[in-house]
Structure formats: C-alpha cells, structure tokens
Design a protein around this nucleic acid. Structure first.
Length: 279
DNA sequence: CTCGTCCCCTGGGAGC
DNA sequence: TGCTCCCAGGGGACGA
C-alpha cells in the first residue's frame, strides 16, 4: 500500500490528532511484526507525551517528550486508526480485532490502533538524537519534495547505475518514498520508458525529478491511493487511485495518445506504461 | 559493489 | 458454492 503520499497522509492525521496526547498504556498483541518489538517497548512509552509526528521516507517518527522516538512502518497492509470516542476507544482497547497488533491508549480516553494483516510493518523505539544514523535511515536517499532531490543529484545518481530506471526510482537509497505505483506514474509523466537503462535515462533527470515531485504532490493532495488496505487515521479512503494515468490500467487507453497501456514485470513487480508516450 | 531472485504474511479476486 | 492459483502498495537476505 503505502508509499510516500499515503505515509504523509497518515502522518498529517496522526500529527493533528495526537499532538500533546499522553500515552497511558501500550498493548502488544504479539511479540513481533516484520521484526520483534524491542525489549521494554511498552514500558519506554507509558506516561510519555507525543510532541510531533514526522516522516522520513516511508517511516513515521513519533517524537516523544523523552529522549525517545517511536519509529513505525506500514509495510504493505498496515493501518493506524484513531478511536475518537471513549466508548469506541474502550471497546477498541479491549477488542481482539483481527490483526490489531498494537493498541495505544491515551489519558484523554482515546486509542490508537495499529492493524496489519500481512505483518510486513514494523514498530520500534530509538533515541531522537541518533535517528539519522539509525540502521533504518542510514543510507536512505534524499526526500523527493526537498531540495536535495535536484536534477543534478538525480542525473549523477542515475549515471552510476545499469539497471532499468524504474527499478532505480524504487530504490530507497536513490530517492526516499517512491514505490511501485508512483514510479510507474512518474515515468509516464516524464515520458521516459521504464525499461531504459538508468545511465541512459540520466539525460532526462530534470524531467524525471519534476515528474516525481508532481505526482507525489498530486497524490498527497488527494489523500493518497486506496487500492485495498490504505486508510486515513479516520478510516477514510484516499482517492488518487481514480487519477492513475497508467498504474493498474493494462489494456486501457493512454490518457494522452489513446494507445493501449502495457504491463510488464521488472524485478518481480508490475510496471505499467505507454509504449508511444514513453521513449 | 550491483543486480536479480526469493521470501516473509494474509486476503481478495479470477478461473475452473 | 468452493477450491486453487495468483497477485498485492515493502523491504531485506541471499547468491551470482
């Protein structure tokens, strides 16, 4: 599910709802997700206040009023849902909702539930002062909506690679937060063939960088894409899935030239593109 | 190093 | 209706 626009949508919902919320308890319904919860996870969080919720790449970072931050990843199917009403909250906290793996309760009576059927998600705690060097973030490339993701940077990064440009865009070390949907969408906007070797696509770096930024901004403005699992923290769906130009549209007509859209496999993932518009 | 392949896990949809 | 197969937004561990 969640690429940068979806994670950013969740971040905004969490940040707005949980600023200054004080954690009362943390219930773990199992010992691990993609990785084990660290020892003392719940204990380190109880009584702490959430200051801000930030995002780096596809990770959410909850800054606490201690030295710690919670790091969370939605994997493919993770959801954060806020139970707003005390009654709903108590029910949520007590519930054994299928795949509700973590339940935070707050002093104000609300609850935050992390639900993740596939359990590719992750939740851990780390020192705020050492986040940039944390194993999960070291080696992560620039944020695509910040200045570091410049045409010059992308040109140099692509020039060093041999693999297809679409695979390169999905590499979190090259640029943070772009996944399978938005890599296809961005290359369509840029008019670049996803099969093109990265070093040859380097000449189009400015167009590609601009397209990545454009599609991510559009998707954030639409509240992300809900194909199956993705929901806002309120439970609402995003609606950018209705705006896909190529993703999931195999055999349908290209929005620009009306030729048929093709589906190929790259690195085990589906890629959608227009052979006429993308060279 | 970089690249491709496989795997983790559950659920939903297509096809028979 | 029910079974089997395939596929899914991510990422990390392998081996070549």
């Amino acid at each position: 599910m969640p690429e940068l626009p979806e994670v950013e949508t969740v971040r905004r919902g969490l940040d707005a709802a949980l600023e200054n919320a004080v954690i009362e308890s943390v219930m773990l319904r199992r010992k691990d997700l993609r990785a084990p919860f660290p020892d003392g996870f719940a204990r380190a969080l109880a009584g702490r206040k959430i200051l801000r919720v930030k995002r780096r790449a596809k990770y959410l970072v909850f800054n606490l009023d201690s030295d710690d931050a919670i790091i969370a990843h939605l994997g493919m199917s993770g959801r954060f849902l806020i139970a707003r009403h005390p009654v709903g909250c108590e029910a949520a906290a007590r519930s054994e909702g299928k795949h509700d793996h973590v339940v935070f309760t707050f002093k104000d009576g609300r609850a935050l539930i992390f639900n993740d059927p596939r359990r590719f998600g992750l939740m851990t705690v780390a020192k705020k002062s050492a986040l940039a060097a944390h194993k999960l973030f070291a080696g992560t490339g620039p944020e695509p909506l910040r200045k570091g993701f410049s045409p010059e940077y992308l040109k140099a990064a692509l020039a060093k690679r041999k693999g297809p440009v679409k695979t390169a865009l999905m590499d979190q070390a090259l640029v943070a937060g772009v996944g399978n949907i938005y890599a296809s969408e961005a290359l369509f906007l840029a008019g670049v063939d996803p099969r093109k070797p990265s070093h040859k696509a380097a000449d189009h770096a400015a167009k590609i960088a601009g397209a990545v930024r454009q599609v991510l901004k559009e998707a954030i403005a639409s509240g992300g894409s809900s194909l199956r699992d993705f929901r806002h923290v309120s439970g609402e769906e995003g609606f950018f899935q209705h705006r896909f130009r190529v993703y999931g549209r195999e055999g349908k007509s290209c929005p620009v030239c009306h030729q048929r859209i093709f589906l190929i496999r790259q690195g085990g993932r589906s890629t959608f593109f227009c052979k006429t518009c993308q060279k």
